[in-house]
Amino acid sequence: MIAPLLQLQDVSLCLPNGGREILSHITYEVQRGDFVVILGSNGSGKSSLLKLLDRRYRATSGHLLLENKALGSFAARPFAQAVRTLTQDCHDSLFVSMSIFENYLLICEQFQARFHFIRRKHARLRLAAYLEPFNEKLANNLDQCVADLSGGEKQTLALALAVCYPPRILLLDEHTSALDPLTAERLLLLTRDVVAQHGMTCLMTTHDLVLAEGCGNRILALRNGRIYQTIEAVEKRALNQQQLLAACY
């Protein structure tokens, strides 16, 4: 039997200095290729859970395993290659004072083999071709400063750069919530496409039930830092938005 890609075993998270418990005794497994939508009201612990998986927070108790290895045991670079995060604040995922090409170059340098020299000219051609399906304007303006892009373009670029060296796990923390409905929908379609194309495992938090219904194959609902409901692929297909609302909130 193949081991789950990600395992959370009785994981709890408390605020520093004996503060309140944000996550409590979470036990959950994520298989390769799963697209898990995490639902829950504000303060239920959705973002904290993703921050735990991204190692921005450290669990107070319990075990977090990635491919049967403790999450904390990964060196910085292999971990960065394995897990990438996209939040609603695109400034979190981009170097905003730098150009599109410089952002790409920095990621390439981190993830390429050491001492592998990247030719600028080749890298530019590669990036232009790579960005074309995401956004033509981005592909044609590689020297444009990221700060000058619109919110939707920044988030599209952040997604494109997050998956240019496909990670094993993509964490999406309400990455479309700051965008207008049309741009959000477009970005979500792009997200679904790239996740499917690369066979990535994805965990996405959202408040949007339309999204939850149309995306992913599993649902994890949190309430007050605890698992309130889990819905698996077969059950999920049979639920509509109203039933989801009733089941998860």
């Binding site: 991204d54 060196a75 910085a76 670079r77 292999p78 971990f79 960065a80 290659q81 995060t85 400034h91 979190d92 995922s93 981009l94 170097f95 905003v96 920095l106 990621i107 981190q110 993830f111």
Partner: peptide
């Protein structure tokens, strides 16, 4: 963005 650079390893 030092935090991002650190997350990139």
């Amino acid at each position: 963005n030092p935090a991002l650079l650190q997350r990139l390893g």
